[in-house]
Design a protein around this nucleic acid. Structure first.
Lengths: 361, 361
DNA sequence: CTGAAAGCGCTAACAC
DNA sequence: GTGTTAGCGCTTTCAG
């Protein structure tokens, strides 16, 4: 049986209150007492029971993270960043996958799964502006991503328009003029899905450079998976439209497009320059390495966790919802004619022949 | 204030016990009563407080998953599989990253972070056979991966020797005879790290085919990151050893090697065939697509979660530790001269031109 | 500075 | 079939 606070108190010869005070770093405890309690804790290998603490204090020290799918690199890296940020603040992270389905996202908000968390970090992919009513939940909620604005919740997101504009400008700067785009959204309601925001950034950059917008260069691809990037690029090549660059709305699409270009014998970046968006680890290692816009994922994770914790600890009237845009920057690599500025991490062990006596077969 | 069981009981005009019975699907409740309780629950939007339940029952319904790093594709896919498997059994997953460090792994076992979980799924990377004493933990523990055997815990792992042997045999079957290997471990203690097991599988296959073992073909790379695969391949090419195939101990190394081969103008698979191990999603999308051995990740996740839940619910004397090896199979793709047998998932939306009226500029 | 005691919301004997 | 009640282990007034 695990030791309880009472056991510790008995061994240390104090009351449970004192043990509690020591554990919670209450300052007014005599040093000698504190020491006695500390060694009793060590002797018994005592660990506080978090269920009990949670029951009493109304907090569990766990936050939920709901994302579409961990197997999408972008979300794995986001989850990584969130977990690290949370760890620094001493909270644990319970990960839930919505499967990128509407039902999954609604289920997460209904809170039927994540009930022993103090709050939720939620990256919606299907729910949109029309669903903001669903965001009226009885627990602290911080949204990641850009699918809804003007909702009742805090909101941390990349700068979609700015990032897309920067990507396009990067292509313009290296002299490209016929810039295709992959990843537009099939419908074109005037909503604010990231696809539309990215189209807007693209068009802003074109407009600023005085280049006419050609809808033939804008290709639909959804969801933003590799195979759809590859297919859209095949489409583009088959259509016979002329283009000297492509901006894909995420890196995964870009890697798919790169694959098609390679197979088709199109040279990158000589014939077609490519830039993605997300700056996932993998972009550094494709052939050729792929330029991308870094949307500030670490910053997003850090800020989102802070905001959520702040909301969890908020007393009294809630502050008005806040919306935060992360900083972004272009990571220029081979696919737009640059030498990779961030070579891979040096090997921990420099590769060499296995130092082992040869043993014939 | 959130509703409690007492509120529900009051509204339904029954006692808390009855409410509890309804919630926990206790069979002997009159239908009419059950219905009354159900509607009271709905009316009050009542949700059980899991901290209280956990405190009372000694279980939280949460398991921990400790892996090195989510940003490594293999582990993201593993975590994905574990979360899905756990969801089916109605338990949530708290994810912890050890950072692939010894301290991180020890901290996880010390349980200072994952205390409100009922048990732990742990994929060690640094701890090894010498550390099995650390596995004597006061909570249910199931190990993933192959770093320790004969420990006191259950253990679910891929079949290292078998997978490596299958990979090598695949290369032999397509007529290759000078098969290099990337990913050996720098030290060669007679331990059972997966690198050594994979070397063993490789040598078994060679031996069975009557091909002598040539240590010059066995290259060290650690950790198994892409950059180290690329570097090891550069090394191999620079060394001037002859080889017509390479088996990399994981896919990430293989993708790195593929990159180097591409840059060096070596044709794959004509000059050098390549096969990896792990069958991560990404292998399907490299240029050329990369053959790999699928180590049965979904099965591993499924079995591990089952085993852990079984342990959590175990009463009386614990059953002896079990060790389970997953099934594996070769996924042959372009890098060994096959047409990809599993084309990418069909696009949800077939790519096409954005149907939008052109607006100049 | 420390102790005594109440009670967080739930489950599970045990009554009826 | 349903109600009563005693804690699970912790935090937190309130005294001293």
């Amino acid at each position: 049986m695990a030791a309880t606070m009472h056991d510790v108190a008995r061994v240390a010869g104090v009351s449970v209150k004192t043990v509690s005070n020591v554990i919670n770093d209450y300052p007014y405890v005599r040093d000698a007492t504190r020491e006695r309690v500390r060694s009793a804790i060590a002797a018994l290998d005592y660990r506080p029971n978090l269920s009990a603490r949670g029951l009493r204090s109304g907090k569990t020290g766990v936050i939920g993270l709901a994302i579409p799918e961990l197997r999408q690199n972008y979300f794995a890296e986001l989850a990584d960043a969130v977990i690290r940020a949370a760890e620094r603040r001493n909270v644990a992270v319970l990960v839930d996958q919505t499967g990128a389905t509407r039902e999954g996202e609604i289920a997460v908000l209904a809170g039927h799964r994540l009930r022993l968390t103090d709050g939720l970090l939620f990256s919606p992919e299907q729910l949109g502006q029309d669903d903001i009513a669903l965001l009226q939940v009885p627990f602290p909620l911080v949204l990641l991503g850009e699918r809804m604005f003007d909702g009742p919740t805090d909101h941390v997101t990349m700068h979609n328009v700015g990032s897309a504009r920067a990507a396009t400008e990067h292509l313009l700067e290296i002299g490209r003029r016929r810039i295709a785009v992959i990843g537009a959204h099939p419908t074109h309601q005037d909503d604010i899905r990231s696809a539309n925001l990215r189209v807007r950034g693209y068009r802003e950059a074109l407009a600023a450079a005085g280049i006419p917008y050609d809808p033939a260069l804008v290709r639909v691809a959804a969801p933003w998976h590799r195979e759809n990037g590859a297919a859209a690029m095949r489409d583009l090549l088959a259509a016979g439209v002329e283009f000297d660059a492509v901006f894909t709305f995420n890196d995964t699409l870009g890697l798919g497009a790169l694959r098609t270009l390679g197979q088709a014998g199109v040279r990158v970046p000589e014939d077609v320059a490519v830039i993605g968006l997300d700056n996932i680890d993998e972009a550094r290692f494709s052939v050729p390495s792929m330029s991308s816009v870094d949307p500030g994922r670490d910053q997003i994770a850090e800020v989102a966790v802070d905001l959520l914790i702040e909301r969890i600890n908020e007393k009294g009237d809630p502050a008005p919802p806040r919306q935060i845009l992360a900083d972004f920057r272009v990571a220029a690599r081979e696919s737009t004619g640059f030498v990779d500025p961030e070579p891979g991490i040096a090997s921990a062990v420099s590769p060499s022949v296995l130092a082992e006596p040869a043993e014939g077969s």
